[in-house]
Design a protein around this nucleic acid. Structure first.
Lengths: 124, 124
DNA sequence: TAAACATATGAACAATTGTTCATATGTTTA
DNA sequence: TAAACATATGAACAATTGTTCATATGTTTA
């Protein structure tokens, strides 16, 4: 059965390339276009060290904008803009208490993702 | 012990904000600056749908540049540029066989990260 | 109600990024 | 060795992104 190595011409370069079955499997297993974009957008949010730091701070405790700006030594405006991005990605929530707005993590997966990411960058 | 709610002025906005202990814990648990940048850079690589698609295709099998370009319906050049990025991030390897260069995944963590990411974007 | 204050936000700007186009490089084959 | 071919890569360009600056919004307090 696996001795039968059927090959298929790939349109682009006209070379004999992948097995038909692999093409099919890739097309079957590839998630929906929409999901792929959403996934890329999620990682894009993680792809900035300011946002990574904000999230890492929030691992410890909920905090107001001012706290985060202080801890990261950045302007309130810069932090506020980034919190907006994090909120749009549903990674943080906020609650207002008087003048102060407290932010906290909204997703339990984040820590896992960061830990696995850390494994990758430290193991090589 | 926890009745003693010592608070500390945060330099930036002059408001009474976080407990001293939280500030300390954040500073202790925050990874090295270098690692934070590397982590952000890793996620930056995942933050593009073309690269996500390439990786997803490689989940199935190793493939040459031409295969990937065909499957993703993109130019060889665009794929080649992106494979370079993936390789710099140590996410893929390649081997040459004659004129053809085959790429494959170099890291076992990727699938986990993608799966957790997918959970996040689909659960809301 | 005016002043003080925490936060949000729009515009501007520099920096980064993804794709295309043209072409170089490396390998095989006639 | 020249032609064919798969891949890599530099330059250019449009698009996206992060921060700053100025200021608006929302809440409290005197």
């Amino acid at each position: 059965m696996s001795t039968d190595n059927k090959k298929k011409k790939a349109a682009t370069c006209g070379q004999v390339i992948i097995h038909d079955e692999i093409v099919k499997r890739v097309q079957q297993n590839m998630p929906e276009e929409d999901n792929l974009y959403d996934l890329a957008d999620l990682f894009k949010v993680f792809g900035d060290s300011t946002r990574i730091k904000i999230i890492w701070a929030l691992f410890e405790s909920e905090m107001c904008v001012c706290d985060i700006a202080y801890l990261l030594n950045m302007t309130q405006s810069a932090i506020s803009h980034q919190l907006r991005v994090l909120k749009a990605a549903k990674l943080v929530r906020n609650r207002r208490s008087g003048k102060t707005v407290y932010y906290s993590l909204a997703d339990s997966h984040i820590k896992q993702i960061f830990e696995i990411g850390m494994e990758h960058i430290t193991e090589e």
